[in-house]
């Protein structure tokens, strides 16, 4: 680890004051400390925000709001989350391990970095870590990498399960920086890699995520998160699907579908949602709706299984919701 200076902030104001060129906020530390040890990130100044009171899980007429410093475990187990938004609770419960969920925060989760082995290994070229050095994954170990939204410069997936569920729910981020407050759709927050994969999102230097807002969606009670991985637990998604359906009299009125493990950012699938609309809630509908889910995929040497896996993961989620 490279040397840094350390300061603890007790309020949003103190945190913003402490932020400077080359500084990093410390929340649960489960991404930051890991990547500092690997010297993938080497901040000169670390600002501990664990005592900043960005807390609270609240529900109102407009929906659900979650403070950025709420821990994954506490959000997953909360009645206001698990009942009205099962896909959120399930995505969190299937993330990482109990110990990590006790540490990691909602804000930090959305800013976690890719698990691409080349990104994590400073001895290898990686455009995301070291712009212009090349992408080792394009012709390397790329079994877990993305097929959607990739570029010649980068094929890394975004690893957050929570973000997939939040994108399906049209969630918004609340941000606070030196220039004041703003709010952004999570879907507009993440960037495609293009030729600048090191610029992953719209967060400005020193800006804090203060919270997440999930719009009210009463029919999200019928939702689920299906995660497919190499191990039964404690592993990242090879593919995942967050799905909600509004079914009346056996017919799908509306649907929400987003996928993880396949895209360079959490991937909403509006065409699949559209194809489900107005159709009977049964297997034939599901299979027809997902037919084009992976259209536009760019396959790599070791991940050609992903389009089929994506289609089947969405179908499995729909079958579960039909059950």
């Amino acid at each position: 680890m490279r040397p840094y200076t350390f300061a603890a902030a007790r309020s949003v104001g103190e945190a913003l004051e402490q932020a400077r060129d080359g500084s990093a906020y410390l929340a649960g530390g489960t991404t930051l400390v890991d990547l500092m040890k690997l010297e993938v990130i080497s901040p000169a100044h670390v600002v501990d925000i664990t005592a900043v009171p960005l807390r609270g899980i609240r529900a109102g007429a407009k929906g659900l709001s979650i403070g950025a410093m709420e821990r994954m475990a506490d959000v997953a187990g909360h009645d206001l989350v698990a009942g009205p938004y099962p896909m959120l609770a399930e995505a969190l419960r299937q993330s990482a391990s109990p110990q990590i969920r006790n540490m990691a925060t909602i804000g930090g989760n959305l800013l976690q970095r890719t698990r691409c082995g080349y990104f994590r290994d400073p001895a290898t070229p990686c455009n995301k870590r070291s712009p212009g050095s090349g992408c080792s994954a394009v012709d390397g170990h790329n079994r877990s990498h993305a097929v959607l939204g990739t570029s010649d410069a980068c094929v890394a997936t975004h690893p957050s399960d929570l973000a997939v569920a939040l994108i399906a729910l049209d969630a918004r981020l609340s941000l606070r920086g030196a220039g004041g407050e703003r709010s952004l759709r999570l879907a507009d927050f993440y960037r495609l890699p293009g030729s600048t994969p090191h610029q992953e999102n719209e967060l400005r230097p020193g800006e804090l995520i203060t919270g997440v807002a999930v719009p009210a969606l009463p029919w999200a009670r019928r939702s689920t998160y299906v995660k497919v991985r190499d191990r039964q637990s404690y592993d990242f998604a090879l593919c995942s699907a967050a799905v909600a359906v509004n079914v009346r009299g056996g017919v799908i009125g509306e649907a929400r579908v987003a996928a993880g493990g396949v895209g360079t950012r959490p991937w909403r699938l509006p065409a699949v949602e559209q194809a489900l609309k107005g159709k009977p809630m049964r297997l034939e509908t599901f299979q027809a709706a997902v037919e084009h889910a992976a259209d536009g995929s760019r396959l790599l040497s070791r991940n050609a299984f992903k389009p089929a896996l994506l289609r089947r993961t969405i179908v499995r989620a729909l079958v579960h919701l039909a059950g």
């Binding site: 350390f6 603890a8 410390l26 649960g28 530390g29 489960t30 400390v33 890991d34 670390v46 501990d48 664990t50 475990a73 109990p98 110990q99 990590i100 006790n102 540490m103």
Partner: peptide, 14 residues
């Protein structure tokens, strides 16, 4: 709460 001490900075748990 159970946590991982390898990803916890000592300075952060004062």
């Amino acid at each position: 709460r159970r946590v991982l001490s390898c990803l916890t900075l000592a300075a952060g748990v004062s």
